[in-house]
Protein backbone atom coordinates (compact mmCIF):
# COMPACT_ATOMS: atom_id res chain seq x y z
CA UNK A 1 0.00 0.00 0.00
CA UNK A 2 2.77 2.44 0.93
CA UNK A 3 4.61 1.71 -2.29
CA UNK A 4 1.40 2.15 -4.25
CA UNK A 5 0.79 5.60 -2.76
CA UNK A 6 4.43 6.54 -3.30
CA UNK A 7 4.31 5.53 -6.94
CA UNK A 8 1.03 7.40 -7.43
CA UNK A 9 2.57 10.48 -5.84
CA UNK A 10 5.50 10.26 -8.24
CA UNK A 11 3.18 10.04 -11.25
CA UNK A 12 1.17 12.93 -9.85
CA UNK A 13 4.25 15.10 -9.58
CA UNK A 14 5.27 14.25 -13.14
CA UNK A 15 1.76 14.97 -14.44
CA UNK A 16 1.64 18.30 -12.63
CA UNK A 17 5.05 19.25 -14.04
CA UNK A 18 4.06 18.33 -17.60
CA UNK A 19 0.76 20.15 -17.36
CA UNK A 20 2.22 23.32 -15.95
CA UNK A 21 4.87 23.24 -18.64
CA UNK A 22 2.18 22.98 -21.33
CA UNK A 23 0.29 25.92 -19.81
CA UNK A 24 3.58 27.80 -19.51
CA UNK A 25 4.45 27.10 -23.13
CA UNK A 26 1.04 28.08 -24.48
CA UNK A 27 0.85 31.30 -22.48
CA UNK A 28 4.41 32.24 -23.43
CA UNK A 29 3.93 31.98 -27.18
CA UNK A 30 4.94 35.18 -28.91
CA UNK A 31 1.48 36.42 -29.98
CA UNK A 32 0.30 36.04 -26.39
CA UNK A 33 3.34 37.93 -25.09
CA UNK A 34 2.79 40.66 -27.65
CA UNK A 35 -0.80 41.05 -26.47
CA UNK A 36 0.41 41.13 -22.87
CA UNK A 37 2.97 43.84 -23.64
CA UNK A 38 0.38 45.92 -25.43
CA UNK A 39 -2.20 45.64 -22.68
CA UNK A 40 0.38 46.41 -20.00
CA UNK A 41 2.17 49.17 -21.90
CA UNK A 42 0.01 50.82 -24.48
CA UNK A 43 -1.85 49.55 -27.52
CA UNK A 44 0.07 51.62 -30.05
CA UNK A 45 3.48 50.26 -29.10
CA UNK A 46 5.85 49.76 -32.00
CA UNK A 47 7.35 46.35 -32.58
CA UNK A 48 10.71 47.47 -31.18
CA UNK A 49 9.07 48.82 -28.05
CA UNK A 50 7.28 45.49 -27.57
CA UNK A 51 10.53 43.59 -27.96
CA UNK A 52 12.43 45.78 -25.51
CA UNK A 53 9.53 45.62 -23.01
CA UNK A 54 9.53 41.84 -23.21
CA UNK A 55 13.34 41.49 -23.14
CA UNK A 56 13.63 43.70 -20.07
CA UNK A 57 11.10 41.62 -18.22
CA UNK A 58 12.73 38.34 -19.14
CA UNK A 59 9.88 37.13 -21.32
CA UNK A 60 12.12 36.42 -24.31
CA UNK A 61 14.56 34.11 -22.57
CA UNK A 62 14.55 30.46 -23.68
CA UNK A 63 11.45 28.58 -22.55
CA UNK A 64 13.14 26.01 -20.23
CA UNK A 65 15.07 28.79 -18.49
CA UNK A 66 11.91 30.78 -17.87
CA UNK A 67 10.13 27.68 -16.63
CA UNK A 68 13.05 27.01 -14.28
CA UNK A 69 12.81 30.55 -12.96
CA UNK A 70 9.13 30.15 -12.33
CA UNK A 71 9.78 26.86 -10.53
CA UNK A 72 12.61 28.43 -8.54
CA UNK A 73 15.45 26.15 -9.62
CA UNK A 74 17.11 28.75 -11.85
CA UNK A 75 18.12 32.22 -10.61
CA UNK A 76 15.64 34.91 -11.59
CA UNK A 77 16.56 37.30 -14.38
CA UNK A 78 18.27 40.61 -13.65
CA UNK A 79 18.17 43.08 -16.52
CA UNK A 80 19.09 46.70 -16.92
CA UNK A 81 16.32 48.72 -18.53
CA UNK A 82 16.89 51.38 -21.20
CA UNK A 83 16.68 54.11 -18.56
CA UNK A 84 19.38 52.44 -16.45
CA UNK A 85 16.96 51.06 -13.84
CA UNK A 86 17.40 47.48 -12.82
CA UNK A 87 14.43 45.24 -13.54
CA UNK A 88 14.64 41.88 -11.84
CA UNK A 89 12.29 39.02 -11.25
CA UNK A 90 12.95 38.63 -7.56
CA UNK A 91 13.27 42.18 -6.28
CA UNK A 92 12.49 45.73 -7.24
CA UNK A 93 15.12 48.33 -8.04
CA UNK A 94 15.04 49.98 -4.61
CA UNK A 95 15.62 46.84 -2.56
CA UNK A 96 18.97 47.00 -0.67
CA UNK A 97 21.62 44.81 -2.27
CA UNK A 98 22.03 42.48 0.72
CA UNK A 99 18.31 41.65 0.81
CA UNK A 100 18.13 40.73 -2.85
CA UNK A 101 17.36 37.06 -3.33
CA UNK A 102 18.52 35.12 -6.35
CA UNK A 103 15.80 32.51 -6.55
CA UNK A 104 12.13 33.17 -6.46
CA UNK A 105 9.78 30.56 -7.75
CA UNK A 106 7.03 28.40 -6.41
CA UNK A 107 9.58 26.26 -4.59
CA UNK A 108 10.42 29.37 -2.56
CA UNK A 109 6.71 29.96 -2.03
CA UNK A 110 6.60 32.90 -4.41
CA UNK A 111 3.75 32.52 -6.88
CA UNK A 112 4.55 35.68 -8.78
CA UNK A 113 2.66 38.84 -9.56
CA UNK A 114 -0.64 39.17 -11.37
CA UNK A 115 -0.52 41.62 -14.25
CA UNK A 116 -4.31 42.08 -14.31
CA UNK A 117 -5.07 42.56 -10.63
CA UNK A 118 -1.69 44.15 -9.76
CA UNK A 119 -1.50 41.95 -6.73
CA UNK A 120 0.40 39.01 -5.33
CA UNK A 121 -0.83 35.80 -6.99
CA UNK A 122 -0.58 33.69 -3.83
CA UNK A 123 -2.93 35.83 -1.75
CA UNK A 124 -5.23 36.41 -4.72
CA UNK A 125 -5.69 32.70 -5.32
CA UNK A 126 -6.12 32.04 -1.60
CA UNK A 127 -8.95 34.55 -1.14
CA UNK A 128 -10.78 33.43 -4.29
CA UNK A 129 -10.31 29.79 -3.39
CA UNK A 130 -11.87 30.41 0.01
CA UNK A 131 -14.95 31.90 -1.67
CA UNK A 132 -15.23 28.93 -4.02
CA UNK A 133 -14.71 26.62 -1.06
CA UNK A 134 -17.80 28.12 0.52
CA UNK A 135 -19.76 27.52 -2.68
CA UNK A 136 -18.49 23.95 -3.01
CA UNK A 137 -19.29 23.18 0.63
CA UNK A 138 -22.94 24.05 0.11
CA UNK A 139 -22.98 22.26 -3.25
CA UNK A 140 -21.72 19.08 -1.62
CA UNK A 141 -24.14 19.53 1.25
CA UNK A 142 -27.04 19.66 -1.19
CA UNK A 143 -25.82 17.33 -3.89
CA UNK A 144 -24.42 14.26 -2.15
CA UNK A 145 -27.25 13.41 0.27
CA UNK A 146 -29.93 14.14 -2.33
CA UNK A 147 -28.18 12.10 -5.00
CA UNK A 148 -27.59 9.15 -2.66
CA UNK A 149 -31.19 9.26 -1.47
CA UNK A 150 -32.52 9.33 -5.03
CA UNK A 151 -30.19 6.53 -6.09
CA UNK A 152 -31.04 4.28 -3.14
CA UNK A 153 -34.79 4.87 -3.47
CA UNK A 154 -34.66 4.18 -7.20
CA UNK A 155 -32.40 1.15 -6.88
CA UNK A 156 -34.13 -0.67 -4.05
CA UNK A 157 -37.04 -1.80 -6.22
CA UNK A 158 -35.77 -1.99 -9.78
CA UNK A 159 -38.41 -1.32 -12.40
CA UNK A 160 -40.98 0.14 -10.01
CA UNK A 161 -42.78 3.39 -10.74
CA UNK A 162 -40.59 5.16 -8.22
CA UNK A 163 -37.52 3.88 -10.04
CA UNK A 164 -38.88 4.99 -13.42
CA UNK A 165 -39.75 8.49 -12.25
CA UNK A 166 -36.48 9.03 -10.39
CA UNK A 167 -34.38 7.61 -13.24
CA UNK A 168 -36.09 9.88 -15.73
CA UNK A 169 -35.49 12.82 -13.42
CA UNK A 170 -31.79 11.96 -13.13
CA UNK A 171 -31.46 11.64 -16.91
CA UNK A 172 -33.07 15.06 -17.19
CA UNK A 173 -30.60 16.65 -14.79
CA UNK A 174 -27.56 15.08 -16.49
CA UNK A 175 -28.85 16.46 -19.80
CA UNK A 176 -29.02 19.99 -18.42
CA UNK A 177 -25.66 21.75 -18.45
CA UNK A 178 -25.15 24.51 -15.91
CA UNK A 179 -25.47 27.33 -18.39
CA UNK A 180 -28.88 26.03 -19.43
CA UNK A 181 -30.30 25.36 -15.97
CA UNK A 182 -28.77 28.58 -14.66
CA UNK A 183 -30.36 30.62 -17.42
CA UNK A 184 -33.72 28.95 -16.91
CA UNK A 185 -33.60 29.37 -13.11
CA UNK A 186 -32.68 33.05 -13.37
CA UNK A 187 -35.37 33.63 -15.97
CA UNK A 188 -38.08 31.86 -13.99
CA UNK A 189 -37.21 32.71 -10.39
CA UNK A 190 -35.35 35.99 -10.63
CA UNK A 191 -36.57 37.89 -13.68
CA UNK A 192 -39.33 40.45 -14.02
CA UNK A 193 -40.67 38.61 -17.08
CA UNK A 194 -42.15 35.79 -15.00
CA UNK A 195 -42.67 38.04 -12.03
CA UNK A 196 -41.75 35.47 -9.38
CA UNK A 197 -38.58 37.17 -8.12
CA UNK A 198 -38.08 34.65 -5.33
CA UNK A 199 -34.31 34.70 -5.59
CA UNK A 200 -31.61 37.06 -6.74
CA UNK A 201 -30.11 36.61 -10.19
CA UNK A 202 -26.67 37.66 -9.00
CA UNK A 203 -24.63 36.13 -6.22
CA UNK A 204 -22.20 39.03 -5.82
CA UNK A 205 -23.61 39.90 -2.41
CA UNK A 206 -23.19 36.28 -1.32
CA UNK A 207 -19.43 36.77 -1.22
CA UNK A 208 -19.77 38.71 2.05
CA UNK A 209 -22.99 37.36 3.48
CA UNK A 210 -24.48 34.32 1.89
CA UNK A 211 -28.14 33.73 2.53
CA UNK A 212 -30.83 31.58 1.00
CA UNK A 213 -32.03 34.31 -1.33
CA UNK A 214 -28.74 35.11 -3.03
CA UNK A 215 -26.93 31.78 -2.75
CA UNK A 216 -29.49 29.06 -3.40
CA UNK A 217 -29.71 29.40 -7.19
CA UNK A 218 -25.97 29.06 -7.89
CA UNK A 219 -25.68 26.14 -5.46
CA UNK A 220 -28.69 24.42 -7.00
CA UNK A 221 -27.41 25.00 -10.54
CA UNK A 222 -24.06 23.34 -9.85
CA UNK A 223 -25.53 20.48 -7.84
CA UNK A 224 -28.21 19.50 -10.33
CA UNK A 225 -25.80 18.60 -13.11
CA UNK A 226 -23.67 16.35 -10.91
CA UNK A 227 -26.61 15.00 -8.95
CA UNK A 228 -28.12 12.98 -11.77
CA UNK A 229 -24.84 11.22 -12.51
CA UNK A 230 -24.16 10.25 -8.90
CA UNK A 231 -27.78 9.16 -8.49
CA UNK A 232 -27.56 6.89 -11.54
CA UNK A 233 -24.33 5.33 -10.30
CA UNK A 234 -25.84 4.78 -6.86
CA UNK A 235 -28.91 3.26 -8.45
CA UNK A 236 -26.82 0.88 -10.56
CA UNK A 237 -24.80 -0.17 -7.54
CA UNK A 238 -27.91 -0.55 -5.40
CA UNK A 239 -29.75 -2.71 -7.95
CA UNK A 240 -26.68 -4.92 -8.22
CA UNK A 241 -26.51 -5.38 -4.46
CA UNK A 242 -30.25 -6.02 -4.21
CA UNK A 243 -29.91 -9.05 -6.49
CA UNK A 244 -27.06 -10.51 -4.42
CA UNK A 245 -27.43 -13.87 -2.70
CA UNK A 246 -27.20 -12.57 0.85
CA UNK A 247 -30.08 -10.16 0.25
CA UNK A 248 -32.19 -13.04 -0.99
CA UNK A 249 -31.25 -15.04 2.07
CA UNK A 250 -32.28 -12.15 4.29
CA UNK A 251 -35.61 -11.87 2.49
CA UNK A 252 -36.22 -15.59 2.82
CA UNK A 253 -35.45 -15.37 6.52
CA UNK A 254 -38.23 -12.82 6.71
CA UNK A 255 -36.24 -9.71 7.50
CA UNK A 256 -38.28 -6.54 7.08
CA UNK A 257 -37.69 -4.79 3.74
CA UNK A 258 -36.66 -1.54 5.41
CA UNK A 259 -34.11 -3.45 7.53
CA UNK A 260 -32.74 -5.17 4.43
CA UNK A 261 -32.23 -1.85 2.71
CA UNK A 262 -30.83 0.02 5.70
CA UNK A 263 -28.74 -2.68 7.39
CA UNK A 264 -27.77 -5.16 4.67
CA UNK A 265 -27.71 -3.40 1.34
CA UNK A 266 -26.85 0.23 1.95
CA UNK A 267 -23.26 -0.09 3.12
CA UNK A 268 -22.23 -2.31 0.26
CA UNK A 269 -24.10 -0.20 -2.23
CA UNK A 270 -22.27 2.96 -1.24
CA UNK A 271 -18.75 1.79 -2.17
CA UNK A 272 -19.06 2.53 -5.88
CA UNK A 273 -20.72 5.97 -5.49
CA UNK A 274 -17.87 7.04 -3.20
CA UNK A 275 -15.44 6.78 -6.12
CA UNK A 276 -17.89 8.54 -8.39
CA UNK A 277 -18.37 11.39 -5.93
CA UNK A 278 -14.62 11.89 -5.61
CA UNK A 279 -14.19 11.85 -9.38
CA UNK A 280 -17.06 14.32 -9.73
CA UNK A 281 -15.17 17.02 -7.85
CA UNK A 282 -12.94 17.94 -10.82
CA UNK A 283 -16.04 18.02 -12.99
CA UNK A 284 -17.65 20.38 -10.54
CA UNK A 285 -14.82 22.78 -11.28
CA UNK A 286 -16.27 23.27 -14.76
CA UNK A 287 -19.65 23.99 -13.26
CA UNK A 288 -18.04 26.39 -10.83
CA UNK A 289 -16.45 28.37 -13.66
CA UNK A 290 -19.74 28.60 -15.57
CA UNK A 291 -21.89 29.39 -12.55
CA UNK A 292 -19.50 31.95 -11.11
CA UNK A 293 -19.46 33.71 -14.47
CA UNK A 294 -23.23 33.52 -14.84
CA UNK A 295 -24.03 34.66 -11.30
CA UNK A 296 -21.10 37.03 -11.08
CA UNK A 297 -19.69 35.38 -7.96
CA UNK A 298 -16.03 36.34 -7.85
CA UNK A 299 -14.45 33.07 -6.81
CA UNK A 300 -11.83 30.74 -8.25
CA UNK A 301 -13.71 30.05 -11.48
CA UNK A 302 -14.17 33.74 -12.10
CA UNK A 303 -10.44 34.19 -11.45
CA UNK A 304 -9.67 31.50 -14.04
CA UNK A 305 -11.75 33.30 -16.65
CA UNK A 306 -10.13 36.64 -15.87
CA UNK A 307 -6.63 35.18 -15.95
CA UNK A 308 -7.20 33.25 -19.14
CA UNK A 309 -8.92 35.98 -21.10
CA UNK A 310 -6.21 38.51 -20.21
CA UNK A 311 -3.27 36.09 -20.56
CA UNK A 312 -2.12 36.80 -17.02
CA UNK A 313 0.64 34.21 -17.16
CA UNK A 314 1.60 33.73 -13.52
CA UNK A 315 -1.97 33.88 -12.27
CA UNK A 316 -3.04 31.37 -14.91
CA UNK A 317 -0.20 29.06 -13.92
CA UNK A 318 -1.17 29.23 -10.27
CA UNK A 319 -4.80 28.57 -11.17
CA UNK A 320 -3.87 25.57 -13.27
CA UNK A 321 -1.56 24.20 -10.57
CA UNK A 322 -4.41 24.39 -8.08
CA UNK A 323 -6.92 22.75 -10.39
CA UNK A 324 -4.50 20.04 -11.47
CA UNK A 325 -3.67 19.27 -7.86
CA UNK A 326 -7.40 19.07 -7.08
CA UNK A 327 -7.91 16.62 -9.94
CA UNK A 328 -4.96 14.42 -9.02
CA UNK A 329 -5.59 14.41 -5.27
CA UNK A 330 -9.24 13.44 -5.74
CA UNK A 331 -8.14 10.62 -8.06
CA UNK A 332 -5.68 9.41 -5.44
CA UNK A 333 -8.26 9.61 -2.64
CA UNK A 334 -10.80 7.74 -4.73
CA UNK A 335 -8.29 4.97 -5.52
CA UNK A 336 -7.14 4.61 -1.92
CA UNK A 337 -10.69 4.91 -0.62
CA UNK A 338 -11.91 2.25 -3.01
CA UNK A 339 -9.24 -0.17 -1.87
CA UNK A 340 -9.91 0.71 1.76
CA UNK A 341 -13.67 0.34 1.52
CA UNK A 342 -13.67 -2.85 -0.49
CA UNK A 343 -12.16 -5.74 1.51
CA UNK A 344 -12.09 -8.02 -1.54
CA UNK A 345 -9.50 -5.82 -3.22
CA UNK A 346 -7.61 -5.14 0.01
CA UNK A 347 -6.98 -8.81 0.71
CA UNK A 348 -6.07 -9.99 -2.77
Amino acid sequence: MGLFILRRLGVMLLTALCLTFIVFWLTNLYPNLEKLAKTQGNFRMSDEAVTSYLTNRGYLEPMPLKFGQWLGVVPGYVNEGSDGKIIARCFSGDTPVEERSRYCGILQGDWGFSTVFKDDVGSLVATRLALTGKLMFFVMLLMVPTALLIGVLAGMREGSKLDRSLSTASILTTATPEYVSGVIFIAVFASSAFGLKWFKGSATSAMESANFENFFLPVLTISLYGMGYIARMTRASMTEVMTAQYIRTARLKGVKFSDIVMKHALRNALIAPFTVIMLQIPWLLNGVVIVETLFNYKGFGWLLVQAASNNDIELLLAVSVVSVVVVLVTQLISDIGYVYLNPRIRIS
Binding site: V11, P31, N32, K35, P282, N286, A308, S320, V327
Partner: peptide, 29 residues
Protein backbone atom coordinates in the same frame (compact mmCIF):
# COMPACT_ATOMS: atom_id res chain seq x y z
CA UNK B 1 -2.49 6.17 -20.57
CA UNK B 2 -0.19 8.78 -19.08
CA UNK B 3 -0.88 11.08 -22.03
CA UNK B 4 -4.63 10.50 -21.73
CA UNK B 5 -4.61 11.19 -18.00
CA UNK B 6 -2.55 14.30 -18.66
CA UNK B 7 -5.22 15.74 -20.93
CA UNK B 8 -8.01 14.59 -18.64
CA UNK B 9 -6.41 16.32 -15.67
CA UNK B 10 -6.82 19.68 -17.43
CA UNK B 11 -9.97 21.56 -16.54
CA UNK B 12 -11.83 21.64 -19.85
CA UNK B 13 -12.51 25.36 -19.72
CA UNK B 14 -8.86 26.21 -19.09
CA UNK B 15 -7.91 24.09 -22.09
CA UNK B 16 -10.48 25.88 -24.23
CA UNK B 17 -9.21 29.24 -23.10
CA UNK B 18 -5.65 28.21 -23.93
CA UNK B 19 -6.45 26.74 -27.34
CA UNK B 20 -9.28 28.84 -28.71
CA UNK B 21 -7.94 32.38 -28.51
CA UNK B 22 -7.11 34.47 -31.58
CA UNK B 23 -3.47 34.66 -30.47
CA UNK B 24 -3.10 30.88 -30.44
CA UNK B 25 -4.84 30.64 -33.80
CA UNK B 26 -2.17 33.01 -35.13
CA UNK B 27 0.59 30.61 -34.14
CA UNK B 28 -1.05 27.83 -36.15
CA UNK B 29 -1.15 25.36 -33.25
Amino acid sequence: SFLANLILAFPVILLFYLLVTPEIVLTGI
